[in-house]
Design a protein around this nucleic acid. Sequence first.
DNA 1: ACAATAGTGAAGTAGTTACTTCAGTATCGA
DNA 2: TCGATACTGAAGTAACTACTTCACTATTGT
Lengths: 111, 111
Amino acid sequence: MLHDPAQLDLMFQALADPARRQMVDRLSRGPASVSQLAEPLAMSLSAVVQHLNVLEASGLVRTEKLGRVRTCRIEPQALRAAEHWINERRLAWERRLDRLGDFLAETKDET
Amino acid sequence: MLHDPAQLDLMFQALADPARRQMVDRLSRGPASVSQLAEPLAMSLSAVVQHLNVLEASGLVRTEKLGRVRTCRIEPQALRAAEHWINERRLAWERRLDRLGDFLAETKDET
DNA sequence: ACAATAGTGAAGTAGTTACTTCAGTATCGA
DNA sequence: TCGATACTGAAGTAACTACTTCACTATTGT
């Protein structure tokens, strides 16, 4: 579920926008209402709600409405999934370099 | 340099596209030429070159031309920067949850 | 020298994205 | 109950993105 390619797609797409990353950054410091999220951003509330919907669809953020206030919070598992994708690729590359290094060291021994 | 917000922007934007992630995935298994990168993708060579340019501008991929072959390889430091951004936010959130848990445990003791 | 290979670059286009404004609906607080 | 608050939703638009095709250049193998 976490590694569903379609979900991964939505997550990276969501993180591609600076305003949305700013929102995630804000939420990493604790839950916030829509207006609180909007406050530091130079755009209309409507625009913020649209960004929020993208974040929610991607699974990176979960929201909950109580009365007239929608409270938003980060979904750390989703962040972990994106992190994991990058990490796997980087590690694959680095392991490859290590093997290459070992190989070169060995062939040097054989001189 | 690694944490330059503009560079981070380019990186996440680059990772947002599935074709580009597929290219990064391929490159994580070792260097490849443009045609090798293009081979599994259902699009023209020109389109692949355009994606490659995005990846290169983002710093995620470095390329080097020898003769008529452009060889592409992953830049693990750039991947690490993206990874790091996500990790920091997730950890901030999780530390917050821990502190909250401690607080709740303490106030429970005080009954 | 010549054909095949490997990639480059420009122009065009359909679809998407990131906004805007404006008009609306709940909910809350005095 | 009535005004202020906190969103919500639709419609429009300008800019951007992910392609395409086609014409082109440089390099390589025979």
